[in-house]
Design a protein around this nucleic acid. Structure first.
Length: 357
DNA sequence: TAACCGTGGAC
DNA sequence: TGTCCAAGGTT
């Protein structure tokens, strides 16, 4: 904990002076209304500031208020989220907006009430309360965890480490202006007290930092967890009928509710897998398969090579199982497609391409 | 509790 | 090319 000469009040003071001088100008800092802070915090979950910035500005233009979001379709919200990843965040955003509007409510100020809403956990609840409502709140993300762990010298894997860090966050928040000092802790973690070699010379807390004093930075919050990557081969078919392409919509899995080129595991090999898939849809006589390479994408612990086969459908679709549609190039641009599928669409759906019948 | 959920940039 | 990882939440 912060004690004595290095009390929370002193920390808050240092943080405030530094933040006013060094904070980045970000779209969600221009207007800290609860709705905007909520959207930005959800977008920023496990996602970099650089990536979020354009998505946030687009999203706010499309859905400027809680009410406008609540009235939108899941397909429109997923389309705005397309390429951001972790699509459950978008589904929960819409779920929460409808829940609140149906009850004639706004985003609550209370931590417990916030945390009951879909997609809002301890961190995001604290962030909305501290930044939007400017109320003292514990708020610990990867940045604050690393910063506080180093300053206080909290030992990695210590039994009470997580609790200590959350208490320290609340102490600092209470001692200063919450929306300033809470953001300052994260901002320092992002810009100065980085996961690699921290830049202590620029840190306003250097004089009271245990890690800096000991020149040792592997404290609580700075130990990366390694994971085993599993390779996987998948294949999808870019199947053309007239000037449209066949899309399917999975009802489960990570891309449920979005559109994709019909996809399957590439077993025993890409072409055979796609033959079987098309055969199940009633096309037994597709002959013009053309291998168009593979798109690689990493999803959590999977390194997936997504092979692409192009072909023409000999007849209009009739027996496709599940949800499907034929989409024009214009529709492909606005439908909710996951990132690898969007790349494939951009590469392989030229209406004037040499693949025209 | 640990696995799962996406993506793009840095190195 | 491979690996790491970023303003976490849910089950």
């Amino acid at each position: 904990m912060f004690t004595g000469r290095h009390g929370a009040a002193e920390v808050a003071e240092y943080l405030t002076v530094w933040f006013v001088k060094a904070a980045r100008q970000l779209p969600w800092r221009e207007d800290t209304s609860p709705y905007r802070i909520w959207i930005s915090e959800v977008m920023l979950q496990q996602t970099t500031v650089q990536t979020v910035r354009p998505f946030f500005e687009r999203f706010i233009k499309l859905f400027p208020t809680l009410q406008s979001l609540a009235q939108s379709s899941e397909e429109d919200v997923l389309a705005a989220w397309s390429r951001l990843g972790y699509y459950t965040r978008a589904r929960n955003l819409l779920k929460t907006a409808r829940l609140l509007v149906n009850n004639g409510a706004e985003l609550p100020e209370d931590l417990r009430d916030l945390q009951r809403l879909p997609g809002i956990g301890a961190y995001t609840a604290g962030a909305i309360r501290a930044i939007a409502f400017n109320r003292p709140s514990p708020m610990v993300d990867a940045n604050a965890r690393r910063l506080l762990g180093r300053i206080l010298g909290i030992v990695a894997h210590a039994p009470r480490a997580e609790q200590q860090v959350w208490q320290a966050s609340l102490d600092v928040s209470t001692a200063g202006t919450p929306r300033i000092v809470n953001q300052a802790m994260m901002e320092i973690g992002a810009l100065v007290c980085t996961a690699g070699q921290p830049n202590c010379a620029e840190c306003p807390l250097e004089s009271l930092c245990k890690a800096s004093t000991l020149r040792s930075f592997d404290w609580y919050g700075s130990v990366p967890k390694k994971q085993v990557i599993q390779r996987r081969q998948e294949v999808c078919v870019v199947a053309r009928w007239a000037d449209r392409w066949l899309l399917s919509r999975p009802s489960d899995g990570r891309w449920r509710g979005m559109w994709e080129f019909p996809r399957t595991l590439a077993i025993p090999d890409p072409e055979e897998a796609i033959r079987r898939l098309l055969n199940d849809c009633g096309w037994a006589d597709v002959e013009d398969f053309e291998y168009a390479g593979a798109v690689r994408h990493q999803v959590t612990r999977y390194a997936i090579s997504l092979h692409v086969l192009k072909c023409h459908l000999p007849s209009a679709p009739t027996g496709v199982p599940g949800e499907w549609r034929l989409a024009s190039v214009e529709e492909l641009a606005i439908l909710p497609l996951p990132s690898p599928m969007r790349k494939i669409a951009e590469l392989h759906t030229d209406p004037a391409g040499d693949h025209t019948p």
